[in-house]
Amino acid sequence: MSVAALRRWIAERVPIPIEALRQPLREELPVHLKSWLIWLGGTPLILFGIQAVTGILLTFYYSPNPDHAYDSVRRISTSLRFGWLVRSVHQTGAQLMIVAIMLHMIRVFATRAYRRPRELNWVFGVMLFLLTLGFGFTGYSLLYDSLSYWATTVGTNLVGNVPVVGRSILWLLRGGPDVNPNTLARFYDFHIGVLPTLMVLVLGAHLLLVRLHGVAVPEGDTRRQTYDFFPDHVLRESAIAIVLLLALVVHAMASPPGLGDRANPNVTPAHIRPEWYFFPPYRWLKLVPMQVGIWTSTAFVLAMLFWPWLDAGLERLAPGRRLGVWLGSAGFLFTLVLLLWEALS
């Protein structure tokens, strides 16, 4: 059968409008997207792909049962061929993904690309950031070593202190009053089922809106040149993907992932700490009473989520004073100070 005949055979049975499918590849991108500061938006997507592949590989051996979880992680790290590599790429990739999203958000914030009509895309972006933090929290808990066990206990207790709905959510998260065998199964479910599904849905909406609106041009950029999404931009993103993979592999070889002591529900270790990306709320909770901490953290997340409207409101309140820029920068610096304070203490 000739190639043409094969194509006809397929086209008859799978009548997909190929031209329509090719359309998204033909997008022309504004030339400022070639800047190294701007391409950050594609990096979290690449890392999410790496996380999905390595995560699926890890599920072949991980056992979400309190009696076996720790040993299964140890087995992956020490006994299985290239287990250390898969786990390290997954673990470091998760951290890089959070860094990449933060940098992308800072870029969008600094260029005020969230303004009308792109407000909803900022909201989807913040949701993706929160989902990624959710991945980090649930994934860290799966290790079932001492630190991860207590991070789960503290983190879920924090949710339990939210007024009105806290206890119900706590029960739902833990599958019981305390951290128990149900909890690990639930966190595993969230990590490999619920969160990825939500991630794909929100990511789809985010990318769709980027496509529908086109990439935002920074204020004051008057250049009109464009370049092709395919192959130019795709090639740039592929180059980034290769560099990231290389960095992850080199890091895995230089510093294979460790594992703390087996979780002991009776003893809270002396130096308990969450992962670095939870340092700001962790330090904040040490400084203020819990209810104050919970309400202010909730307000911070809500302000972040609805920032485009908050910024527009501030602009209406005091035109030209750029109150939003000052307030947003102050919030960012405050978070950074809390993070560094905890990191250095």
Binding site: T153, V154, N157, L158, N161, L285, M290
Partner: peptide
């Protein structure tokens, strides 16, 4: 009573 760790 803060967030459920074990005191020493």
């Amino acid at each position: 009573t803060h967030l459920g760790c074990i005191i020493q």
